[in-house]
Simulated assay, not measured.
Amino acid sequence: MAGARIERLVTSGTFSLDGGTWDVDNNVWIVGDDHEVIVIDAAHDADAIAGAVGGRRVRAIVCTHAHDDHIDAAPELAERVGAPVLLHPDDLPLWKQTHPDRAPDAELADGQILVVAGTELSVLHTPGHAPGAVCLYAPALTALFSGDTLFSGGPGATGRSYSHFPTIIESIRERLLTLPAATVVHTGHGDTTTIGAEAPGLPDWLARGH
């Protein structure tokens, strides 16, 4: 039995890119036990996230990608809880649009293993929604944290700068749909889904294009 559990916090704010701004609700995922956690995507509200963490040690603040709605609270949360911010280096150009004077503390790399509460999470580089987008796969929890790469109903958006539809489809096909069908997909926005529920939609996504 895995030592870690999954907690979800929903925070609200805005997403801005390419001159537009939209209201969004984000899922912040806290993975760990009563003693230590990692935070996946520190969105909008450092106070709320710190409150949800409580007195537990934060081993890392992991960014699935660097769109501003997923990283806007990361530096403040890092300072409050004394944890490093981790980001794939391909997303540094996006990060710098939001935090030009504060770099991430360490890089995420494909195949890297993060450990919290005795549970391993594997970093999967899944570009397309953003160049440095990653998902975290925790087989012991039957869980995938997909950021904005895969949602209930299809792939993440690719209509804005730094995104590319054929690339996200390849990422999903090669890196995510190869996971066990029962894997629960914990998304960056909205409801959870499973790999098995999303796999049949791939032909439709390919036909639809973008």
Rank of each mutant, 00 (worst) to 15 (best):
A138N: 07
S152T: 15
V134D: 03
P155H: 08
Y162H: 12
T149C: 12
S152E: 15
F145K: 06
L124A: 08
H125W: 14
T142K: 14
G132N: 10
T149I: 13
G154R: 02
T126C: 09
H129P: 00
P127Q: 01
P131L: 13
V115Q: 05
Y137G: 12
Y137P: 14
A130W: 05
A133P: 08
T158L: 00
S171M: 00
R160D: 13
G159W: 02
S171N: 01
S122I: 13
Q112I: 09
A109G: 10
F151W: 09
S161M: 02
G156D: 09
V123T: 03
S122R: 10
A109K: 06
F145D: 12
I168A: 08
A133Q: 10
Q112W: 08
H125G: 11
V134K: 02
P139R: 14
A106Q: 11
G132S: 12
Q112M: 15
T126M: 05
I169Q: 06
T167L: 06
I169A: 06
S163L: 03
G111M: 01
H125S: 14
H129S: 11
G128K: 12
T158E: 07
V116R: 00
A138H: 01
F165P: 00
H125L: 12
T119G: 04
C135Y: 06
T149H: 03
G154V: 03
A109P: 05
V115I: 03
A157P: 13
S161G: 09
I168V: 15
S163N: 03
G159V: 10
Y162T: 04
S163M: 02
L108Q: 12
F165E: 04
L136N: 00
G118N: 07
G132F: 13
G128L: 11
A106V: 07
T119Y: 00
S171F: 02
G159K: 02
S163T: 06
A157H: 09
P139D: 12
P139H: 10
L150N: 13
V134G: 03
P139Y: 11
A140Q: 03
L124N: 08
S171A: 07
L124W: 05
I113E: 02
I168H: 04
S152K: 14
P166H: 05
T167D: 15
L136E: 04
S152C: 14
S161E: 09
D110S: 14
T126Y: 00
A138F: 04
I168T: 13
T149F: 05
R160F: 08
Y162F: 12
P166I: 09
T149P: 00
G154I: 02
V134A: 04
S161N: 07
L150E: 14
P139I: 11
P166C: 07
S122C: 01
L124R: 11
L121H: 01
F165W: 10
F165Q: 09
E170K: 15
I168W: 02
